[in-house]
Computed example of a mutant assay.
Amino acid sequence: MDIFIHILFLLVGFAFLIKGADFFIVSSVSIAKKLNVSPLIIGLTLVAFGTSLPELAVSFAASISARAAGTTADIAMGNVIGSNVANLTLILGFSAIMMPIAVRKSMHKQEFPFLVIITILISVLAFFFQSDAQIVWWESLILLLFFAFYMYLMFRTKRTPSEVDEIHVVDTKKAIVLLLIGLGGVSLGGYLVTTGAEFIAIELLVSAFSMNISRATTLVGLSIVALGTSLPELVTSIMAAKKGEGEIALGNVIGSNVFNTLLIVGLAGLVTPLGLNNDVLIDTVLLIGITAITIFFCITGSKISKLEGYILLGIYFSYILYIILRALSILPF
């Protein structure tokens, strides 16, 4: 009976995360526009942050739970790495299949190199800076400094994103109410998803398949939780692709991955060390390869074609199959 209750926690938690993030985006953009904040700042910060709120809520809840238990927050890093993989493959893949995604050449000089650098950085921190394979507080500060630099780049650039035009603006009073509801929704959703996922990992995977707790938690974080928290990005990008706004889909993914890697890992790591077992360490390297493939598709022909979209989808489902077989110890690595 307990397993069904925690599956319900997981599903209800995802619903709160998705709707809460949606309320947050609408309300924060509305308030920012009322205060005459630059459309650029709204699009590249508030919108990207809004779609990354589920990852932040889950990772932060996992960190607080781990700190109380005196352990490391393994599910937090699994969630971030898995979400980044889903963003680059599943989300961009689906979007490109619906409509080939045009890529601005200006992204070749700023967004793409920055994304590669921070993806490599998280692997370097995981592998070489700590013998116990953790992201600790001072490493989190490094990530937050890179995030501050990213924000500086966004303030400095002169491009105006079209994402803002896609968002309905509401009056200030309603925006404040929606903001509070949205923050409450993602907070409660983060707690429910973390609680449900950890229980399922321990009770179902450990008991039924004899996995160790760390590997089971990592599998759930990389797959179920990562996919669930990526749903806002998935919905936003697919809707944008349907309307022929492929740049929105690409910008949403790039921005979300930057927020996930720098802000979310940085903040969560300040609360408690983020555990990186061998599975997550391997996946940080896989993420570098997936990032390189995606950027290669973006650069060649200045677009992501439908064929490349299918390839990205194939990479995602191959990755999911790989982590399942690995967790079941069918694969040696």
Rank of each mutant, 00 (worst) to 15 (best):
V85T: 14
K19A: 09
F24G: 01
V225S: 06
I75N: 01
M154I: 15
I64W: 03
L205N: 08
K243M: 07
F317A: 11
E139D: 12
L276T: 12
Y316K: 07
L325K: 12
Y316H: 12
R215V: 07
G43Y: 07
L17M: 10
G189S: 11
A21C: 06
L312I: 02
I311K: 12
M107I: 06
I282D: 04
I176F: 13
G255T: 06
T157Y: 01
F129V: 14
I324R: 09
R326Q: 10
S214E: 09
L88S: 11
L263P: 02
G244N: 09
L276H: 00
T218V: 14
S123K: 01
G82T: 05
S187I: 12
T89M: 05
N252E: 01
L8K: 10
I64N: 02
L115T: 07
I3P: 00
A126Q: 02
F147L: 13
I120K: 05
P113Q: 08
L250Y: 03
I101K: 04
A241P: 05
Y191G: 01
M1G: 14
L40I: 12
V170M: 10
T195M: 10
L8I: 15
S162R: 12
F259C: 13
G184S: 12
I142G: 04
K242R: 15
A327T: 06
G266V: 10
G93W: 02
M151W: 02
G275L: 04
I31D: 01
M211V: 09
I25W: 03
I135S: 03
N87C: 10
G221I: 11
R159L: 12
L307N: 06
R104T: 00
L10P: 05
K158S: 14
L192E: 02
A249F: 04
M239F: 07
A66D: 00
P161H: 13
D74A: 07
S83K: 11
T217D: 00
A76K: 08
G246Q: 07
P232Q: 08
N257H: 08
N257L: 09
V116K: 07
G82L: 10
K34V: 07
H108A: 06
N277G: 11
F209P: 02
L250G: 09
I323T: 11
S329K: 15
A76G: 03
A175T: 05
F199W: 11
L270N: 05
I290R: 11
K306W: 01
P273A: 02
L227G: 03
K158P: 00
K174L: 13
L125N: 07
I238H: 03
A21T: 05
P113F: 07
G275A: 08
E55V: 13
V220Q: 04
G301F: 10
R67L: 14
L153D: 00
S329C: 00
Y319D: 06
A102P: 05
L287R: 13
A102Y: 11
N257W: 10
G50C: 08
L143M: 11
V186E: 01
I120D: 00
E139L: 08
G244Y: 08
K158N: 14
T229L: 06
I288W: 04
I248K: 04
F16M: 12
I323R: 12
L178Y: 13
I42M: 15
F147R: 05
L143G: 04
F49M: 15
D132M: 03
I18V: 15
L35R: 11
I122H: 05
G93A: 11
M151Q: 12
S52P: 08
I176R: 07
A268S: 15
F14V: 10
A96S: 15
T194G: 13
T261L: 14
F24R: 10
N79V: 10
L234N: 03
